[in-house]
Each structure stands twice: as C-alpha cells, then as structure tokens.
Amino acid sequence: MYNSKITGLGFFVPDNKVTNHDLTKIMDTSDEWIQERTGIKERRWIAEGSDETSATMGAKAAKIAIERAGLTKDDIDFIVFATLSPDYYFPGCGVQIQDMLDMPTVGAIDVRNQCSGFIYSLATADQFIKTGMYKNILVIGSEYHSNGLDKTTRGRGVSVIFGDGAGACVLSRSEEKGKGILSSHLHSEGKHAEELTVISPSIKHWVPEIIDSKGEDISYFPYMNGTFVFKNAVVRFSEVIMEGLKANNLQTTDINLLIPHQANLRISQFVQQKFKLSDDQVYNNIMQYGNTTAASIIIALTEAWEKGLVKDNDIIVLAAFGSGFTWGSTIIRW
C-alpha cells in the first residue's frame, strides 16, 4: 500500500472584485448586514461578456499546480473534477480539462458533492493512489456561481454569499511512511437534501421558472434554509474533525492548521472557539472570496501554503459541510 501526498498547489480567481457596497446598488442590502451574517467583504465574479467558465478556471489552476509539482501534463494519470456548476449538464468538466491541457487520454471523473466536493475528490484520488492504480492525480475544485444567482433583493440571502474561482492540486504516490494523507472521513444525510438545493433544471424540470402541479414556483435559483444549514454545519464540522483526529491518535492541540470549507465565517469561528484553537491555527479567506463551494478549501490551502503557513511535518486538517447534506474531513501530515 502506497501513501499519497500533495506535491503541487494552484488557484485562480477572476480579476473582477464585487464588494458589498457594489451589491447595495442592485439589491436592498448593506455592507454591515452582509459582514455581520457571513463575514464576507467582497467576492470575485466573472465579468459579464467573459468567456471564463468553471472548466477554464480549473484548467488555469491545474497548470499552476502541475508546474509546482515539478511535473508535466503527460505525467498526470487521472483527473478528478469537483463542481456544482459544470459548463454543461453533461459531459462533466473533467474531460474538458483533458482536452484543454492537451493531455493523453487519461480517465476523468466529476464529483457532484457541492461544498464537500473537494474533500470527496481528494479521498477518491487518495484511494486510487494507495491501491497502486495511479501515480499522479490532478484534483480540481472550480465554481462559476455568479451567472446562476438571483441578484435581486428576493435572492440576497443566497447571492451575497457566493463567489467564483478554482483551485487544484496534484496528489502523488509516496513511499514515505506516516506523511501525506493520513485518513479521510465521509458522511451524508439525504433526508435534508431540499434544505439547500437547486430544484430545476433537472430531469423532472427542464424548463426554468415553471409552475408545478400545485401552483408553486419552481426556480432554477439556489434555495437555502440558512438557519437550519448553520445549525447542522456546526455540529457536523465538529464531529467529523474529531473523528479524523481520533482515527490518527491526535488531539486538537496537535492541529497546526485547520482549513474549513469557507461557507460562513461565523461557522468557522464557532468551530475555532469550540476547539479552543488560536487564530494562527485556523485559516479563513471567505472575507475576500466569498463561498466558492468545491473550490474553497483548495483555494484556501493554496493561499496558506503560498504565505508560508504550511510547513513540513505540520498536521493539516481539512473539513467541509454542505448540500446533500454531505460532510467530511481529511487529515494530512505535510
């Protein structure tokens, strides 16, 4: 059984910054209202008229990660692409990456686990490597939210939260024992699926903004029961982090850096306080990028690494919770 370790990291976000003050011009909201509830100050949205997509952003992040890994595109054996905002209903973005990077005809899969997508993708890639099937796997999280948001007062509870961006890493085979990905822990609870969802388009509802048989509006805009999601998130975050630590005989005091999914700064702060972690032990960047769903953890991890906050032999904890409900954690010894 081999070990797997992250050998290259990269991220890409659009140049277009959208501040909370910018949003006050198109909806009834305020900088104070948004920051108090989410901690977000600004986010990146793809500019109108741009050709940028989830796949193109993912490709740009991937190129950086591959180069930093000291590899070429021809060294990549497999692609795992996490997104809730693919360029097409089908096929998935993974095959587009194979084409955009002019790679050999390697396999590619898409993971549709929304906010937990990167954790699920990393766990999937880890198993492919540990069984010896592949040597170098490209793992990408990328989201183009802004084109699918209700940017009116009606949709402000959701639309102020989300941003666009992509992150990528190369996961490589290693024979160094006790380092790299130590374990991953994945969970789901489907009975809460419609608490955070997009109802249409789907196989049942192909036409946007239609009326169902009960006379109720079925929208293609995201719906979120914010309070319910928050309450579940703080519980599941805590549980799955502890699950990962216990599996590796670690304590919260052993954490060098916790990188939670950037869903809401208040959730991260709740978890930090519960585990009595210092500010230096938790990395957040939702203030600048908003919630980039499947891209958020890998963007944050890359940014933390670029700042020198991720060091050799550090215990890094990644954790996410989101739609599905799905949640998970990954424990890494860097």
Rank of each mutant, 00 (worst) to 15 (best):
S146L: 02
G141D: 06
G155W: 08
N113H: 12
I119R: 07
G141S: 07
E143M: 04
G141W: 04
A108W: 01
T153P: 06
T124F: 14
D126L: 10
P104H: 09
N136R: 06
A123T: 14
I140L: 01
G148S: 11
E143C: 03
I109Q: 11
I109Y: 14
T131D: 14
L149N: 07
L149K: 02
Q127V: 12
V111C: 05
F128V: 13
G163D: 03
S142H: 03
N113E: 12
T152S: 10
F128M: 15
K151T: 07
T153D: 02
I140V: 01
T131N: 10
S159N: 04
D164S: 01
G117S: 10
S142I: 02
G107E: 03
M133K: 15
L122E: 04
V106D: 03
A125C: 07
V106N: 03
H145V: 11
Q114K: 14
K135E: 04
V139K: 00
G157I: 06
A123K: 04
A108Q: 00
F128R: 13
T105M: 14
A125E: 05
L138G: 00
R112S: 15
I161H: 08
P104W: 02
Y120S: 01
G163P: 06
G163Y: 00
K135P: 09
V139M: 00
D150A: 05
I109N: 13
E143K: 06
D110S: 12
I137Q: 03
G132V: 06
I109S: 12
L149W: 04
F128K: 14
K135W: 00
M133H: 15
S142K: 03
S116H: 10
F128A: 13
V139C: 02
I140H: 00
V160A: 00
N136P: 05
N147E: 14
G165T: 00
V158T: 12
G157W: 07
G132C: 12
A123Y: 05
V106I: 11
Y144V: 13
F118G: 08
D110H: 08
Y120F: 13
Q127N: 15
L149Y: 06
Q114T: 14
V158Q: 09
T105P: 13
V160N: 02
G167Q: 03
N113G: 05
V106T: 09
A166G: 07
N113W: 03
A125M: 05
I161M: 10
V160R: 05
Y144I: 14
A108I: 00
D126A: 07
G157S: 09
I140S: 00
T105W: 13
G132Y: 08
D150H: 10
K151Y: 11
I129L: 11
G167Y: 01
K151N: 11
G132W: 01
L138V: 04
Y144L: 15
G117I: 09
N147A: 15
G155Y: 11
S121M: 07
A108T: 02
F162R: 02
V160K: 05
S159T: 08
I129M: 11
Y144T: 14
I137P: 07
H145K: 11
K130H: 11
C115Q: 10
V158P: 09
L138E: 01
Y120G: 06
L122R: 00
